[in-house]
């Protein structure tokens, strides 16, 4: 092998790469935030007394979890305008990733809800708390703590899925990497740099989440 690495033309584009990874993080954060709120609602619905609500929740989860994210992205971006609903590419991608995230987060939170012992709910009832306050002060705080490790895994996974936004020309890291690739032909270098940026970013997210887990997750005794 006699390949001469030359990173200079790629590193010269650092503002693009940086803005790409920044946009990727932003897409992930916004979508995960929306997806988490939706997912929480779906998780509660999946454990509601009403059978109708429960099957609605499970339908939601099974449809979105069984669709490839790329299909949802393309469907929304190219399909929706046919129905008269044109969204710009960034909004369209956020909607797609939020929907997708909501199914995964619903499962994460459903597991978290199941991990809250019934005895703690009864302890709340016994001191006279209403069911809304039991949710607010007992069920939700314990659920979030117990769900944190699974939440973290999904967070990383969803962040990596932002690379698919390149397919609809959202200017995130993969999009710029492709662009620089075709302009410089330094194929190995550009994908090495892009890979490294993804790894560093994911690792940083892992560290933050681990620190949160350490502080928040409840020890068993």
């Amino acid at each position: 092998m006699n390949y001469h690495f030359n990173f200079a033309p790629i590193l010269a584009q650092w503002p693009l790469l940086l803005s790409g990874i920044g946009l990727g993080l932003l897409l992930a954060l916004v979508s995960i935030a929306i997806g988490s709120v939706l997912g929480l609602v779906v998780a509660f619905a999946s454990r509601a007394p009403s059978r109708w609500l429960r099957s609605l929740a499970f339908t939601w989860i099974s449809i979105l979890r069984n669709l490839p994210i790329l299909v949802i992205v393309l469907f929304l971006f190219f399909g929706m305008p046919q129905l008269g609903l044109s969204l710009d590419k960034i909004t369209s991608f956020i909607v797609a990733l939020s929907l997708y995230a909501s199914a995964y987060m619903a499962e994460v939170f459903r597991g978290g809800l199941m991990s809250v012992p019934q005895g703690l709910v009864e302890a709340g009832q016994a001191i006279g708390l209403t069911s809304l306050r039991i949710k607010r002060y007992i069920v939700l705080p314990i659920m979030f703590r117990n769900a944190l490790p699974a939440f973290g895994n999904n967070f990383i996974s969803l962040f990596k899925d932002t690379s698919l936004a390149a397919t609809i020309a959202v200017p995130e890291l993969t999009y710029y990497a492709r662009k620089i690739n075709s302009e410089t032909f330094r194929v190995i270098e550009v994908w090495l740099v892009a890979s490294l940026l993804y790894i560093v970013c994911c690792y940083a997210i892992t560290l933050v989440l681990r620190a949160m887990e350490k502080r928040l997750v409840l020890e068993k005794n």
């Binding site: 005895g119 703690l120 302890a123 016994a126 002060y137 314990i142 703590r145 409840l218």
Partner: peptide, 12 residues
């Protein structure tokens, strides 16, 4: 006021 067999203290 109720005291439970499994204590049921709020762990958080």
């Amino acid at each position: 006021g109720m005291v439970f067999q499994a204590f049921n203290l709020f762990p958080h």
